[in-house]
Design a protein around this nucleic acid. Structure first.
Lengths: 247, 247
DNA sequence: CGTAAGGTTGAATTCGATCAAACCAGGTGG
DNA sequence: CCACCTGGTTTGATCGAATTCAACCTTACG
């Protein structure tokens, strides 16, 4: 019997062991489930909000625009993630959130989450930890964009998404869902669409990945990790992920 | 009568109003004060730690190395900041921390911080908020590095440091301490040292800044903000900072 | 003094952005 | 059923920005 909250619990358990009581508290959070069309804005920059949402199905992302209209996508969110947990303690959003596919989200009122936190320091801990892992991913992306070549950036992000999907059980035969346009991918790694296209072709040419119809298949994990200079430590999964980690 | 913990309190109050009781709890945290020579490593990547530290004097930074030896400095920390608060909930560090000048730091045991948090959800809230603001700064830097021109990146970081120093009362006559080498600055904004040098000269040539002897003076804040596409909202200061914000 | 660290400058080269256009598949409507 | 449109991908040519490499300068310091 699968409840919407299950995917969230699966994610939380992937980063920390939870007591039965804490799991019950979290499972008891009221959650309103809604489905959105591809490209719908969930929260806009500058907005205030009374809920946090978790991704149940599909892919979401945050975004920021610069003064001259460029867009950065600082992060992507897979099922089980809680993108705007930050709104729990920061009054206005410094970034917007939107779904990058048709997606189903679960909304939980701030009030209920605060109550759950004050009932258990363990619940506080795991949610805090979620936000800290988000920050760790930002640091890694900063390093990725700031220091690595474009091909390494791409390989790195493909590895990361693999491990994150795997942590919630959504990798099937080395394949996972990656329904991004090359434009969006470019906005995520700080390069132009045209250049993304060429470098993706390079990765395909080297037989490292197969990417079509919004699904990415890793053909050679060892080499992809090597090219992407990838080490999953920054994802802070409690049990290191099987495939990607074994060296 | 000035205690070491005062600067921390000043910082916390700049982002959230604190009840008297919460201030007392924080002021009561045991803090061991130590001074370090320029360039000392405080925590290394992969390490575990039993303390968090706050910067009392000087400048600290985090750093990550890529496989081929490039360094990224994902963040800088001014007095009042608590760089490794993340260690409270993540077992190993995914980044190193080092002081970039001679610096004085205050170390607080995790145990004591956890105790303070479980005594008051307000204390939990403000510390959590500190980590969320760190994350917000990462997002902004990501946007900065990913989307803005080099001159904008530099102007942006100069603005940010101004506002952050000002929030803890350390700006004096539009001047603040910025004892970075151009190399370090390059590692922070993802460009080469040589290019940093040329772009700094461009900013000097435009009479926007004066930077010498480790101190940066803003000569024309309006234009610097304009060039840097800077908006301090992401710093989430509770009372918007006077100078930088007035448009 | 001599050395080291940081800053500055020039020239050559490479990488990636930009511009422009073609291509391709799926969906729509006449 | 075909023509058209749209969103996304692919390709080529050109241009500019930033890296690299190397040298030189200044200052602080033992």
């Amino acid at each position: 019997m699968s409840e919407p909250v299950d995917i969230l619990l699966r994610r939380l358990k992937s980063i920390m062991s939870l007591s039965d009581r804490d799991q019950e508290i979290i499972a008891g959070l009221p959650m309103e489930v809604k489905t959105f069309a591809d490209g719908t804005d969930i929260v806009r920059e500058g907005q205030r909000t009374e809920h946090c949402f978790t991704v149940l199905e599909g892919l979401a992302g945050s975004y920021k625009f610069t003064g001259d209209g460029n867009r950065q996508i600082p992060s992507l969110y897979v099922p089980g993630d809680v993108p705007d947990l930050t709104s729990l303690h920061l009054s206005h959003m410094d970034t917007g959130y939107r779904v990058l596919t048709r997606a189903t989200l679960g909304f939980m009122p701030h009030r209920a989450i605060h109550e759950a936190c004050s009932m258990s320091y363990g619940v506080t801990g795991v949610l805090w930890r979620v936000t800290l892992i988000d920050a760790a991913i930002f640091r890694e992306w900063l390093t990725n964009i700031g220091q690595r070549s474009t091909i390494a950036r791409l390989a790195h992000i493909f590895c990361e998404m693999y491990v994150r999907y795997e942590a919630v059980g959504l990798v099937d035969g080395d394949t996972y869902s990656l329904p991004l346009t090359q434009q969006e991918l470019g906005d995520a790694i700080g390069t132009s669409t045209v250049h993304v296209n060429r470098v993706v072709q390079e990765l395909r040419g080297r037989k490292l990945i197969h990417w079509a119809d919004g699904r990415l298949k890793v053909l050679n994990m060892m080499d992809l990790i090597e090219v992407g200079d990838f080490d999953p430590a920054y994802l802070h999964l409690s049990h290191a992920s099987p495939k990607a980690v074994s060296e």
